[in-house]
Design a protein around this nucleic acid. Structure first.
Lengths: 176, 176
DNA sequence: TATAAAATTCACACTTTTCTGAAAGTTCAC
DNA sequence: GTGAACTTTCAGAAAAGTGTGAATTTTATA
């Protein structure tokens, strides 16, 4: 590699720092995996959060023991999610990234949006069921029961959606 | 099979009803899968929710096209989670299940508890990191930065945990 | 414009997760 | 007790999901 004496540029200076970063990155990986976003996304986000300044894809790949391919894909995903942003350095064609200033907020919004999507998927099905049942005869007892349950579920869903809309955001977003 | 003329006992009477149930069950399966609980759990819960009265494992397995094995395991899981409860019928050694009366509440509590667990996993790591850094020298700039970030993350985590404690429960549980 | 360094894409190998079928275990009516 | 009807367990097949390396494309300089 070329000389790398730029401020905070490369290679672990403190082994302790490196350990801590890797350990927390692993934890982040588990979390994001559980959220259905893949492990690497979480690893990278935590790694960048714990890195002072900008960081090249190269470095991330090497430090976390991942392929450049995986890092490249996840970087774009994270950027798209608004968790990290790209930066440039003169006479260096590598891509550098850093966490967005308000990662906390972005994170919560992201999680909420995932939740909303999942609820929305169910919502669509419920509406379809509702429509199908409305069409059908309302003389049949089984159909009536079904219609009742679907209705109750819709109420539940609406309430949840509402809740995810107002109070949570009001409660969450103010925090820096 | 033996005669099955008991009220609401077996076999689909209404094809429409059967379709609606299966479709919504599939949606539930996807949701629970996303939550990391496996597909069948969600399928079964929705199926039972949409079934008027008690339901045997046999019937569920047949109607959803699943093996008895899978159904048996998931039934216990759901029972353990407090989402369904077992019922009996005279001179019938099969196991019957039905959704608990307040499925909505149980569901929300379940989801919240899953969330809390995931956060807790991260919390442990953060504390470990905090401890490790406190021990290390505080002269080093890199370590100081790291410690600062860990601290901020802890604040975030505490806030989230708090929020999952109070306001949500207050908002969610009152609904029937 | 040529070229070299880096990023990206893609087919596929690997890992993990999920489900099933067969066998063993329970339970209850007789 | 015995046997028939269910349930449960478990090994391993099938399916999903992930990550990698080789090849390709992009990009920035000279």
């Amino acid at each position: 590699m070329t000389q790398t004496i730029k401020a905070g540029a490369s290679a672990a200076k403190q082994p302790l720092a490196r350990d801590v970063r890797q350990r927390l990155a692993a934890a982040g990986g588990r979390t994001s995996h559980d959220l259905g976003l893949g492990r690497i996304v979480g690893q990278m986000l935590v790694y960048l959060y714990l890195w002072d300044g900008d960081c090249s894809l190269d470095q991330i790949a090497e430090d976390l023991g991942l392929s450049k391919a995986a890092v490249s894909v996840s970087a774009r995903q994270l950027e798209h999610l608004g968790m990290i942003r790209r930066t440039w350095r003169e006479s260096d064609r590598r891509k550098y990234y850093r966490t967005v200033d308000n990662v906390g907020v972005a994170l919560r919004q992201g999680v909420l949006s995932i939740l909303r999507n999942k609820i929305e998927a169910m919502a669509v099905e419920l509406d379809a069921a509702h429509a199908a049942l409305k069409t059908g005869a309302r003389a049949d007892a089984e159909l009536q029961f079904l219609a009742g349950r679907v209705k109750r579920a819709k109420v539940l869903r609406d309430r949840t959606q509402q809740m995810l809309g107002h109070p949570l955001l009001a409660l969450l977003l103010p925090s820096r």
